[in-house]
Design a protein around this nucleic acid. Structure first.
Length: 253
DNA sequence: ATGGCGACAGGATGTCGA
């Protein structure tokens, strides 16, 4: 099964840049999208149906903001919208699809970069997310969490760790959360198979950062630890240019 | 420390992102 997570930074903008052809060529079994910034009625969903996908959308209440989606070749046994906490679910950040062998979540963790209030919201979210996952895994242990975590785990995951030591997304408390989250029972599938530096999944639009590969690795496919020997491949696709993020691929048995 | 770019809502600029 080929799973791809992709923060598309507006699915309409991404579609205008060739997203459909890219999906056709990559042919994922499950595609987890974040920051769709649209509801399905604003999008030509037939284009996804023509490619053979079932499609599930969880837009935010606020137009043009946030929102996640899952496209899958196989019809899920069950789809769950959100986590049951209104403040989070209003922002369209969690969508979970249960299949025969795996449960796949598309998740968009909040950014804390717009101010103290949102950083506090993000830290609370992280704590509540951990709790939610602890409960979910008891029912559905074969979890694959795909999405934009908005955290670089380690110095190897960011181009300039020193100058970003006090920047949201690389704060000590965020990295500590990530360490605890992974240690609670998940494998960062990309890092599991790729130990070398300079692999990123997001670049600022500004100052030609992408051309210089000055980026951050904040998009992850987290696989439940007991599934380790099922992981076949993990890579990022920095050549895909529909967004300020790039897709991250997981191939699992 | 700040700005830098881009998507989007709404119909000029403001918000948000990392």
């Amino acid at each position: 099964m080929k799973v791809i997570t992709y923060n598309v930074n507006g699915i309409r903008a991404a579609m205008s840049k060739g997203l459909i052809d890219w999906i056709r060529s990559e042919d994922p079994d499950v595609l987890c999208l974040q920051e769709i910034k649209a509801s399905p009625d604003q999008v030509g969903v037939f284009e996804f149906e023509e490619l053979g996908y079932h499609h599930y959308w969880y837009p935010a209440q606020k137009k043009g903001y946030s929102g996640v989606a899952i496209f899958s070749k196989q019809e899920p046994k069950k789809v769950t919208y959100g986590c049951g906490i209104k403040a989070y679910d209003d922002e369209g950040r969690i969508l979970t699809a249960e299949f025969d062998n795996y449960t796949v979540m598309s998740v968009y963790h909040p950014s804390g970069s717009s101010g103290e209030d949102r950083q506090a919201f993000k830290m609370k979210w992280l704590s509540d997310y951990q709790t939610y996952i602890e409960k979910l895994r008891q029912q559905q242990p074969n979890l694959i969490l795909c999405g934009d975590f908005n955290i670089c785990h380690r110095a190897i995951d960011i181009h300039n760790p020193k100058s970003n030591a006090n920047t949201s997304g690389f704060l000590p408390e965020e990295r500590e959360w990530m360490e605890g989250f992974v240690n609670s029972g998940f494998i960062d599938s990309f890092r599991h198979l790729n130990k070398e530096p300079h692999h990123y999944s997001w670049w600022s639009y500004r100052a030609g950062s992408r051309g210089k590969n000055l980026g951050w690795r904040i998009d992850y496919n987290m696989v439940a630890h007991h599934l380790e020997n099922k992981i076949k491949n993990a890579c990022i696709l920095p050549q895909a240019m529909h967004s300020d993020h790039c897709p991250v691929v997981l191939e699992i048995e």
